[in-house]
Design a protein around this nucleic acid. Structure first.
Lengths: 221, 221
DNA sequence: GATGATTTGTACGTATGTATA
DNA sequence: ATATACATACGTACAAATCAT
């Protein structure tokens, strides 16, 4: 049923491989090597690489082998920062723009996450968490905002995942979600924004505690 | 001195053509036609098109001719909305992060725009305006934020340009800049954000007055 | 609905640029 | 500094898909 082009399948595969850390940052990506590896010619590889470069996952220098974008710690911090603001904005707008059905759904979904927390099911929580945040993106009723929030979130995803494994982080995260939901239902958009900003700030801090100063790797020359 | 690849020159040419409305939205872009038009083969054309698709300027469907992205009025409004928030955030952060030199430079540059306003030199003001806003992006000291602000601004540019031609808009715009600068120098980041948000909101409203409901063009089928 | 014209998707060979010995 | 190695950049041929007839 799904029509897909070779470039597309390669693109998604490579995306997964990079986000899933199966391709380490800094790795050099040889067109020819990838081509035989995927059993395709170099052309679709090239096009996939372009798109990856556009989304920031690989770095592309003229006439040089593409690199899996090295995770610049500074840039990462910047993205977390912006992510918090984007999501805070989403929360604020969602408070103002969500209709009754969306509010009810958000509240219900939030409550449905309680058992997951009780069971300490990190994998399930992670999945539900994405849904939760996405509901708020949607609630903001701004497609462009949703788009940049999603793409930022996607790029942060691999760095964000671990923090949920911190002791008691699940329960705390769920509490923070609760504050956000409460603010939204109450119609207090500033409180919603602040709660969301706080939620993401804590996420980042937890992360910093867990993965202290991953060495910045190779500084070329 | 500048080394450039064929794909790059084609990319910038096409970008200019699209942003400059020489290629109308909805136009179908034939690879082969573009190829001979640029005196190149289809390969660099294709790669340029991918990158344009990534930046949202063209739409790319499998096995179908690429389209110059039709300017969806809703999406445009959404982008204006987000742009205002992004720039407000930049202003807020710049207030907190700019060093003394940057503050002085911003203030000086702002003042240097006064003669341009007096002469009603729209072209010069437009150019200076970009510099002004960019100085604030830089002041925020967040490369990622700057990146998405710039790309949003770039895509809005063609829709934004005309409004400066509205009567007395130059003078008003300059006044609004003044409020932003004052707030930043005063160290009031909330005021700076609000002033910036207001500035962009007025920009949008002026635009709406000038170009009332540009007909949405051809609805295919 | 099938067929042909047109256009994109893919393969691969050659040219060119970059880095290293 | 020159030459050599190696990967991309570009060109062209062919396959596959879409649209019109």
């Amino acid at each position: 049923m799904k029509k897909t082009t070779r470039t597309d399948t390669i693109l998604t595969r490579l995306t997964q491989d990079i986000l899933g850390k199966r391709l380490a940052p800094g790795t050099t990506l040889d067109e020819t090597r990838l081509a035989e590896q995927f059993g395709a010619s170099r052309t679709p590889i090239r096009e996939a690489l372009r798109q990856l470069a556009a989304s920031g996952l690989v770095e592309l220098r003229p006439h040089r082998a593409p690199l899996v974008a090295p995770t610049n710690d500074l840039r990462l911090a910047e993205m977390f920062d912006v992510m918090a603001e984007l999501e805070a904005l989403c929360a604020s707008r969602a408070t103002l723009a969500m209709n009754a059905a969306q509010r009810a759904e958000l509240d219900a979904f939030h409550r449905s996450m309680a058992p997951i927390v009780r069971d300490s099911d990190v994998a399930a929580y992670r999945a539900a968490n994405v849904v939760f945040h996405t509901m708020i993106y949607d609630g903001a009723r701004n497609g462009y905002l949703k788009q940049i929030a999603l793409s930022t979130r996607e790029r942060l995803a691999p760095h964000r995942g671990v923090q949920l494994e911190a002791p008691a982080r699940l329960a705390q995260s769920h509490l923070e979600h609760g504050e956000i939901v409460t603010a939204i239902l109450r119609g207090d958009h500033e409180a919603a924004a602040n709660a969301m900003r706080r939620h993401l700030t804590i996420t980042r801090e937890t992360l910093a505690t867990l993965a202290p100063a991953r060495t910045s790797g190779d500084l070329p020359k």
